[in-house]
Design a protein around this nucleic acid. Sequence first.
DNA 1: TACGCTGCGAATGTATACATAAGGTGCCCC
DNA 2: GGGGCACCTTATGTATACATTCGCAGCGTA
Lengths: 242, 242
Amino acid sequence: MSDAKSATHAQRALIYLRQRILNGQLAGGTRLFEVALAEELGISRTPVRAALARLAEEALLDRTSGGGFAVRSFAVRDVVDTIELRGVLEGTAARLAAERGVPAEMLAEAREIIRQIDRLFSAETIDMDGYSALNTRFHALLARMSQSDVIQRQIERIIALPFASPSAFLDDHSHQLALIKTLGTAQEQHRALIDAIVNREGARAESLAREHARAARRNVESLLGQEAALREGVPSLAILST
Amino acid sequence: MSDAKSATHAQRALIYLRQRILNGQLAGGTRLFEVALAEELGISRTPVRAALARLAEEALLDRTSGGGFAVRSFAVRDVVDTIELRGVLEGTAARLAAERGVPAEMLAEAREIIRQIDRLFSAETIDMDGYSALNTRFHALLARMSQSDVIQRQIERIIALPFASPSAFLDDHSHQLALIKTLGTAQEQHRALIDAIVNREGARAESLAREHARAARRNVESLLGQEAALREGVPSLAILST
DNA sequence: TACGCTGCGAATGTATACATAAGGTGCCCC
DNA sequence: GGGGCACCTTATGTATACATTCGCAGCGTA
């Protein structure tokens, strides 16, 4: 328990294993054995089992036939489809927001976030961590605007996969200039999205949210078109199988 | 272990609890305690915990702050939103199927299912179990047509909730004649959906699948507009909170 | 009366020993 | 030589005892 601040052993094991899966240190298809993990972590099987069950819940593990667990394999197509799915779900959230109407406070909050992102852009160099945090807040707010717990839940579930999160690939610093241009486009989409919701234009809002997610998809595809060396610094892609 | 055919105690507990939640015997918000359940089932806490974890995975339980579990509450709006969500996901599956193209064997299988449903309609009285099975097969096939494991997985997850399954509310026999008319419409939508996919008309396919799901939504809403007595025979709705 | 503190109890967290089943390997028989 | 059976190994399944923590209630004090 030297380096861990987590309350319970199960939480520590959960964090440790999640990390190693997302890292790619545990390759897709690898079977995870309770005893081995328990020894490795210096704890008993019980908390390990709890951690494995939660990772299965997060869709990072598959349950094998015999009752065990194996690391889920993510192929390129899976990553692309997951991002597409996020677009579809956020699109639905946006459409519902437009159809059902959104409380003024939420709209104000959205506009405030947009304003803060604008402020970041006016600085000399862009504070990527700051942008990432604001962008995440914007997307979480969009999910809430749907006023549907069901939709919100699904979006949270998808976003938990790091390569599908709205802030994925922002940590790739290899194309700083291209990235800045991309962020400008994204910000325009944020603005248009709120405009559509305010005007109760459901179809437009849905379409904009989908297109907004496509930016992430283009990022993946361009990264994968590069030499392997250039992908090294992109942790979100470490989980990829091949 | 007298009445159970399940291999393990955990599976037996899982089935038992799932049943009671879907029944409505365990009301939404009810906290589930390991010790109490273990005593009730005559087993130890360990398999109970395993069952609870899996029910959380199925989205039938929420994890409470302290580390426990509580039965998830489903309000009418949640049911409606979940059906809407199924429509959105099946719409995405249909669109992807149209965009990516579908192997001839799958199309043949779809047409065969449609043919068999036609045959059911020509009988004197409609075999509802038979229809339900065929309808379920059609929807499962549609999910596969997307050729996306990610999408397929999500659809399976949603359909696991009985009130969101494509065959929900077919067991309501109170309006037999109206139902038959509904089934005719559904069958037309099945046909149009396959037609759209064959012709690579993505937007049309998506729109048709969404509208197809709306039938289930209309069913819920009409059932809820009735007197409580008429809703008694509809097991899919037993889980509703209020 | 209101606030807080303390102690008790009931819940989950954990370790461990044993049960059981499934899968693999090696030997033996055909 | 090949196939099948049996054993053994190794995995998960289960029970139970103990640890720990969190919350609540009751009492006390300001």
